[in-house]
């Protein structure tokens, strides 16, 4: 049984990453690879859907920190959505809501991107 899964869906101008399971020091490299691939493919508008993310530690949070600067340099962003209160609490403890836009629903994050995309 896989303990952590990353699944990518590409829509118009926005890529959505679905996370499932636990994101710790063991599984963080999987998410790093996914971000690395997005950057190589020049996909900088990223929504991370955390609906099925059951656990996150600082190793997981560190992955978001590692990529946000490069993504923003390329006029993109990493937006987060659908977090459980438990997962949100960890992001909140570390002050991430100051740095990242966190939405209740994936669609809201996608709409925010679309509003800023050139026609």
């Amino acid at each position: 049984m896989a303990d952590f899964k990353v699944h990518q869906r590409d829509g118009e101008g926005v890529s959505v990453i679905d996370l499932k399971g636990y994101l710790d020091a063991h599984t963080a490299p999987d998410l790093e690879n996914a971000f690395q691939k997005l950057l190589s493919d020049r996909k900088y508008n990223i929504v991370v859907n955390c609906k099925e993310l059951t656990y996150i530690s600082s190793a997981g949070l560190g992955v978001f920190m590692a990529f946000i600067e490069d993504v923003r340099k390329n006029q993109g962003d990493i937006k987060l959505s659908n977090m459980s209160p438990k997962v949100y609490n960890v992001f909140d403890l570390l002050g991430f809501p100051i740095l990242y836009e966190i939405f209740k629903d994936e669609q809201e994050a996608v709409v925010r991107f679309r509003a800023t995309l050139k026609p």
Partner: peptide
């Protein structure tokens, strides 16, 4: 965070 440091968290 504003310096995007990931260590120490």
């Amino acid at each position: 965070l504003s310096h995007y440091r990931r260590g120490g968290l």
